[in-house]
Nucleic acid binder design. Structure first.
Length: 268
DNA sequence: CTCTACCCCTGTCTGC
DNA sequence: TGCAGACAGGGGTAGA
């Protein structure tokens, strides 16, 4: 799915489409996504006013005067502005302006929920810090967390309790940039390496956001355009191709059931 | 508690 | 061509 840069790109697109708009009608086409869409959602958000769209981790938050609509894109969720109907359309927001925003998701790993901003939301509790927030995602924090985990460092940085937004692509890319082997046990990562990892996660994510995310298969922004960061992948999906630094073939293996890519010479 | 394997689902691609 | 199996950007959960 969309990882942090892709979700960020979708949020920027939705901001243009939805901020300061009034929702005229909510249509729930598929009540059962990964989790059930709450039956009360339709009634609550009909005639609500959208005042902001934000992101927390990989969640899209649509702020209205009636509460916050929350959407996770799973692996294949997309938004588009369109009145036509397509296969796997699950949810529609009809605006008073006449526009219609459609949520489409072939695999239905995504979901839609809502919560009252005055109360806590169980989807957002227990999430780690935002990787681009230098105050909370810092060396001391990371070192203290690393000490508690013996799982491979790639699994560690993909765990949203440790740091949010890093998924399968950017985990491989960030570890390559930091010269850290993805299989290294987390509690064996040294202070200097932890600093390098923070740096590389932030660099990779910032660069990817700048390029509008990565488009492999079907990722699209809310405006329907594609991202371009996939042109800059150093290791992801490059099994057998030469490492851009040392020329050795990139290796692929499964770590925690997920495809992982690295250079065995550059990453120790 | 931590960690791993499995599972949700459809579409696409590979190899026989 | 047809078909089986593997695989895909996420992450909740059961059970070790």
């Amino acid at each position: 799915m969309p990882e942090l840069p892709e979700v960020e790109t979708v949020v920027k697109g939705l901001q243009k489409q939805l901020v300061n708009q009034r929702i005229k009608r909510v249509e729930v086409i598929t009540p059962q996504l990964r989790f059930p869409v709450p039956p009360s959602l339709k009634r609550i958000f009909t005639a609500s006013h959208i005042h902001d769209i934000t992101r927390r981790a990989k969640y899209i938050l649509i702020h209205t005067d009636k509460g916050i609509l929350l959407n996770h894109l799973g692996m294949t969720g997309t938004w588009r502005e369109d009145v036509s109907e397509k296969k796997h359309d699950h949810f529609k927001l009809y605006l008073e302006s006449g526009k219609c925003l459609v949520y489409n998701d072939p695999r239905r790993f995504g979901y839609i929920d809502y919560f009252d901003p005055k109360q806590s939301c169980h989807w957002l509790e227990h999430l780690g810090p935002e990787p681009l927030d230098k105050k909370s995602f810092n060396k001391d924090y990371l070192l203290s967390r690393l000490k508690t985990s013996r799982s491979p460092i790639k699994t560690f940085i993909m765990n949203q309790k440790n740091v949010v937004g890093v998924g399968n692509i950017y985990a491989s890319e960030a570890l390559f940039m930091a010269n850290i082997n993805p299989l290294r046990p987390s509690d064996k990562i040294k202070k200097q390496e932890a600093e390098a990892l923070i740096d590389s996660i932030q660099k990779v994510l910032r660069r990817a956001i700048k390029k509008g995310g990565s488009t492999i298969r079907d990722f699209k922004s809310a405006g329907g355009s594609q991202g371009y960061f996939q042109m800059e992948f150093k290791v992801y999906g490059r099994e057998g191709l030469p490492c851009s630094f040392c020329g050795r073939p990139i290796k692929q293996l499964k770590i925690g059931q997920r495809s992982s890519f690295y250079c065995s010479k550059c990453q120790k």
